[in-house]
Simulated scan of single mutants.
Amino acid sequence: MDKVSQSAADAVGDIPDHASLAVGGFGLCGVPNELIDALLRLGSGALSVVSNNCGLDGEGLGRLLAAGRIVRVTGSYIGRNKEFARRYLGGEVEVELVPQGTLAERLRAGGCGIPAFYTPAGVGSLVADGGLPWRYGPDGEVVKASPAKETRVFDGREHILEFGITTDFALVRAARGDRHGNL
């Protein structure tokens, strides 16, 4: 299978509304900006995004967010993106906050076909106990909260069950790629 695309528009051309995307980058480093711009031009919406963060106002994923194209974010950091915070607190976007190492491991597990794993990260917090606000209502009440997670003790230490993450598409910034999709 030849995975080479002639343009960023061709690379994202199959991404429909309601798709889930894993998006690379950390802060504004390594962000696949050309692919994000092409997706913005394509017009796909109601997207669920898995990424460390949602960029900044007007930068990175912040452009898709400002255009109202993102409905759910799984990430580890809201940061200085005021539009992201506004949309989250205003009930316009659902946000699942995940400890950063756990987010990376959930993505790795999903990519390896591992459905779930146990980790001590988050034990004793709302990550484990449930109740983290995922979505707010327009008047500030929590309308959807994280569920409690299954726990298990290994070698005398409590762990929580986390599920691997898989997405429909991934947007990755790279200098080179081959026809097999190696970047």
Score class of each variant (00 low, 15 high):
102 T>V: 15
24 G>C: 06
132 L>P: 07
11 A>S: 02
8 A>V: 04
88 Y>F: 15
168 D>M: 09
121 A>H: 12
158 E>D: 07
147 P>R: 11
101 G>M: 08
20 S>Y: 00
56 L>D: 03
55 G>C: 03
177 G>K: 12
158 E>Q: 09
50 V>L: 11
135 R>N: 12
108 R>H: 13
2 D>W: 07
97 L>H: 00
60 G>Q: 05
141 E>S: 15
87 R>V: 09
131 G>Y: 03
43 G>Y: 03
129 D>I: 01
57 D>P: 04
91 G>E: 10
52 N>S: 10
169 F>K: 11
15 I>F: 02
22 A>V: 10
8 A>M: 10
93 V>G: 01
6 Q>K: 12
152 R>I: 04
135 R>A: 14
52 N>L: 14
17 D>E: 08
4 V>C: 14
98 V>W: 04
23 V>P: 07
170 A>V: 01
4 V>N: 13
48 S>M: 06
33 N>D: 12
46 A>H: 15
47 L>P: 03
123 V>Y: 05
38 A>P: 02
83 E>T: 13
176 R>M: 05
155 D>H: 14
55 G>T: 05
161 L>A: 08
9 A>G: 06
175 A>Y: 09
152 R>D: 00
9 A>F: 00
172 V>K: 07
158 E>G: 02
121 A>C: 11
87 R>D: 15
161 L>V: 00
150 E>V: 06
54 C>A: 13
44 S>N: 01
121 A>Q: 13
149 K>V: 03
48 S>D: 08
177 G>V: 14
75 G>N: 03
145 A>N: 11
91 G>N: 07
18 H>Y: 13
84 F>C: 09
121 A>N: 12
164 G>L: 06
40 L>C: 07
167 T>P: 01
135 R>W: 09
44 S>I: 06
65 L>N: 03
110 G>V: 01
123 V>S: 01
170 A>D: 03
133 P>E: 14
112 C>Q: 14
105 E>D: 10
30 G>K: 01
158 E>N: 02
74 T>G: 05
8 A>F: 13
65 L>T: 11
164 G>S: 08
180 H>A: 11
106 R>E: 10
10 D>E: 15
20 S>A: 08
161 L>F: 00
144 K>P: 03
132 L>G: 04
163 F>P: 13
110 G>D: 06
